[in-house]
Amino acid sequence: MVAVSVAFNISGGHVNPAVTFGALLGGRISLIRAVLYWAAQILGAIVATALLRITTGGMRPLGFSLASGVSEWHALLLEIIMTFGLMYTFYATALDPKRGYLGTIAPLAVGFIVGANILSGAPFDGAGMNPARVFGVALVGWRWSHHWLYWVGPFIGAGLAGLIYEFLLIQPETAPHTHQPLAPEDY
C-alpha cells in the first residue's frame, strides 16, 4: 500500500511489472512508458533486496519456493488467479476513467488485495504476484527454483484482467446527443 501510495503521483502507482503489462494491454500506457517502468521496477527490486542483505549482515534471501506437494502447474494457476485479482482491483480503483472518488482509495484497495493474496497464497508458493520483487530476491540470493512461474503467472493474470476490464467492463464513451436546431427551410 505504501509503495503504491508514494508512486501514485509519479507513475500512477506502477510498482509491479505485471500490473504495468495489464495497463499496457488495456491501452492505458504506451510501450515506451511500460519499458521504462519495467526497468525502474526491476532496478528498484534489486537495490531493495541488496540493501536488505547488507542490513542483515549478509544474510542470503531465501527466495520463493513451492511448498511440499505443490506442483509448478498449481503454483502457476495460483499466481494467475492472485495477479488477476490484483490487476482487476488496480483497474477498478486506479485506471477506470469512471472511478470518481474511488480513485482516492486505490493504494488502500491494492494493499488489501495484496495482503489477502499473501495470506492465501504464501503457504503454497510464496505469493509472488510481482515479478520484479521475485527477481530481486532471486538475483541477490542466487536462488532460481521455479523462477519462470513467477513471471509467466503474473503476466497472464494481469494481462487477462487488463483486457477483460478494459474491453468488457469499461463502456466506450459515447458522444452526448446534441439536438441540432432545424434550419428555417425545414419548418
Rank of each mutant, 00 (worst) to 15 (best):
A109W: 01
S120R: 03
P131H: 11
L160C: 14
G162N: 10
M129K: 12
V15Y: 04
G57K: 03
H147A: 12
L182Q: 13
H146Y: 12
G58N: 11
G141S: 10
V134H: 09
T178R: 14
G63S: 06
I105E: 02
L77N: 03
I54P: 00
V4E: 04
A67L: 01
A116E: 03
S68L: 00
L95C: 11
P131K: 13
A92E: 12
L76D: 04
A94T: 04
K98T: 09
A7T: 14
P97L: 06
W144K: 05
N9P: 03
G103P: 08
H147D: 10
L51S: 12
P97S: 11
A7D: 09
P97T: 08
A175V: 14
M82Q: 13
L62Q: 12
L182R: 14
T174D: 06
G141T: 12
V110F: 11
G136C: 11
P181T: 10
E72K: 08
A75Y: 07
I29C: 08
T178K: 13
M59W: 02
M82A: 11
A94V: 05
A7H: 02
V134Y: 06
A23T: 02
S120K: 03
P181L: 13
P107G: 05
S11F: 07
L168N: 11
P181F: 10
A75R: 01
V114S: 00
P97V: 09
A183K: 14
V70W: 03
D186C: 02
L95I: 15
L36D: 01
V35M: 00
P17C: 09
G103F: 02
L182V: 04
I29K: 05
G136F: 00
A92K: 12
P97C: 07
T178M: 08
I46N: 05
L95R: 06
W151G: 13
P61N: 05
V4P: 05
P61R: 02
A175E: 15
L25N: 07
S68Y: 01
G111P: 04
V140C: 04
A94C: 14
A40K: 07
P181K: 06
V70Y: 02
Y37L: 10
H147F: 15
T56G: 00
S120C: 14
H146P: 03
H179P: 00
S71V: 04
I105G: 02
G26Q: 08
A175L: 10
I32E: 02
V19T: 07
V140H: 10
I170C: 05
A116G: 15
D125T: 15
E166L: 01
T49Y: 02
E72L: 03
H177G: 06
A3W: 08
A45V: 00
N9Y: 09
G157V: 11
R33N: 10
I164L: 15
G126K: 00
L149Y: 11
V2N: 07
A116P: 04
H14G: 04
F90L: 11
P184L: 00
V4I: 14
F21W: 13
S145K: 13
A48P: 06
L119R: 06
A18Y: 08
R143S: 14
A18G: 11
L168R: 13
F8D: 10
Y150A: 07
I113F: 11
W148G: 00
W151K: 11
P17A: 04
Y101P: 01
A158H: 06
Y187W: 12
